[in-house]
Design a protein around this nucleic acid. Structure first.
Lengths: 246, 246
DNA sequence: TAGCATTTGTGCGTATGTATA
DNA sequence: TTATACATACGCACAAATGCT
C-alpha cells in the first residue's frame, strides 16, 4: 500500500515522517488527535518499530506531535499563517491580526544588469541596469520568506535610501513617485529547500519552500517591480482571493 | 557557506541535488548552460566527488541535466506547465495550448458524512451527507494532480452518473442545475509528497506537492464544491492572474 | 596526426549511518 | 542490547572521452 522506497537518498524514517505529516494535514487523526500505536504504524508501513520510532522522534522534534510513555503520540495543533495574494498584496498588511509583530528586513541592495526574465517582466532592454533588493520577511521573530525584488535602476535609484528611512517598500515606492500599485500576476510553485533557503529561513533539510514569481505595476501604468520570493511552506499558506465579481 | 547537514535522514547527495536544482531554477547557469565541474562542485559543497556524482546522477535521471564524459554536465531546458487560477478555473481549459491531450479521470465516488472543514466550506451541518469524488488529472499521459472534491449529497446525488456520461465536472454540474460557477478562494501550500502522492502521481521520494484548498460557488449563490488538490510541484506552476481591474 | 590538459567514468578499501531481527 | 546487512560518504588511483594545440 504505502510503498516506501530505498536507495533514494531519503531515509525510510523520514519518508514515514513525511507521510504522517501529510496524514495530519489531511485531518486523518482529527477526532481524538491520537496517532496509531508504534506497533500498528510499523505494521502499516511494513518496517521495524525502531524505524517508526525514528520518524515519531523527528515529528516530536518539529513540535508536530507529543509522545508520552504509556499513552501514545498526539497531534499538536499548529496553524500555518495565511498570506493573502490579491490585487493589493503587501507583506505586513496581509499578516495583520495573525501575528503580534511583522518585520521586513533589507539584507542587501545593489545595481546589476537585468537578466532575461527580469528585463522581460519590467519591459526593459536586456542587461539594462536594475536595482536589486534582497529582503527577509519575519513574523514574531520567525523568518517566513526570503525575497529578491528588482526595479528599474534610474527611476528607483534612491529607493534603498527611502526604504531605510521608512522600513516599508510601499512607502519607499511612494517616495519615488509610485502613488499606488497592484499585483499583476503571481506564479506559484514549490521545491525542496536549497542550502541557502535553509540558512535564510532557518529550515531543516527536507523542508519545502513555496516559490513565487510576481510583478507589481502602477495603477493604469506599466510594471514597476519584479519579485522572486521563497516562503517556508510549513509556516504559510498562500491565500488567493478574487476581487469584486463575487 | 552552503551548510549541508548530516544525520537528518536526507542523504548529502540529495541535499546537493536539491541545491543545484534550485540554482538552475534561479537561472544560475543560464549563460552557457554548463554546470561547474564535479571537482569544483565537490569543493564548493565540501564533499567527495563521488557524492557530487551521486547528486548529478539523480538530476540526470530526472532529465534536469545531461552529462558527457570529457565535456561536463549541461542543463536541459524543461518548462513547467502553467495552471491558471482565477475566477474561471477549470482543469482542461486551463492547460489548452500547452499540451496535446488532457484527461481527468474519476477514481472513486462515495457518500460520507461531512468532516468539519467540508461542512464549514459548504455551509452544511456537521456530519451532513456529502458526495466525495476522487479524481486524477493528466496531461499527455503524465499525472499532474490528484484531487478530492466534495458536494452536498442530495442535490448532487446523480453527479457521478453525469460525470461518467460527460467526462467533465463542469458539464456534470450543469446537468445538476449549476449553470455557471466561479472560484471563490484558493489556499495554497506545499509539503513533501506522501507515499500515496508518490503512487498516484508517479513521483520519487523527496518530491514535493503543491496543496490547494478551494471552493467553487454558483454565480450569485452559495458554495457548491469544496476541493483538496495535490499537484506534482516539479511539473506545474500555479499561475494567479487577477481579473479586470488591471 | 600526435600530444596535452581538462573532465567524466570506474574500481577498491574503509568508516559511518540506516534498518532489521 | 547486540549482531548483521546494506546504503551512504570518503580517499586515492587510474581509465576513457573531449577539445585544443
Amino acid at each position: 500500500m504505502s510503498s516506501l522506497e530505498r536507495r533514494t537518498g531519503i531515509a525510510l524514517w523520514r519518508q514515514i515522517a513525511d507521510d504522517i505529516r501529510a496524514a495530519i494535514g489531511n485531518g486523518a487523526y482529527e477526532d481524538t488527535g491520537k496517532l496509531p500505536t508504534e506497533a500498528a504504524l510499523a505494521t502499516q508501513f511494513g518496517v521495524n518499530r525502531h524505524t517508526v520510532r525514528a520518524a515519531l522522534a523527528a515529528l516530536a522534534r518539529d513540535g508536530m506531535i507529543d509522545t508520552t510513555q504509556g499513552r501514545g503520540s498526539f497531534v499538536v495543533a499548529r496553524k500555518r499563517l495565511s498570506y493573502p495574494i490579491g490585487p493589493r498584496t503587501r507583506f505586513s498588511a496581509g499578516l495583520e491580526g495573525q501575528v503580534a509583530r511583522t518585520r521586513s528586513r533589507g539584507l542587501e541592495s545593489r545595481i546589476e544588469p537585468a537578466s532575461a526574465p527580469v528585463a522581460e517582466a519590467l519591459h526593459l532592454a536586456p542587461d539594462a541596469p536594475v536595482l536589486r533588493l534582497d529582503m527577509l520577511g519575519e513574523a514574531d521573530g520567525t523568518p517566513l520568506s526570503r525575497a529578491t525584488h528588482w526595479f528599474e535602476a534610474t527611476r528607483f535609484a534612491h529607493l534603498p535610501d527611502h526604504y531605510r528611512a521608512f522600513g516599508s517598500i510601499t512607502r519607499a515606492l511612494a517616495a519615488c513617485g509610485v502613488e499606488d500599485y497592484v499585483r499583476l500576476f503571481t506564479d506559484i510553485t514549490a521545491a525542496p529547500a536549497s542550502a541557502a533557503d535553509r540558512q535564510d529561513l532557518d529550515l531543516e533539510p527536507g523542508a519545502v519552500v513555496l516559490l513565487t514569481l510576481s510583478v507589481n505595476g502602477e495603477v493604469g501604468g506599466g510594471p514597476v517591480q519584479y519579485s522572486r520570493s521563497r516562503f517556508a511552506a510549513d509556516r504559510v499558506t498562500l491565500s488567493v482571493r478574487m476581487p469584486g465579481e463575487i
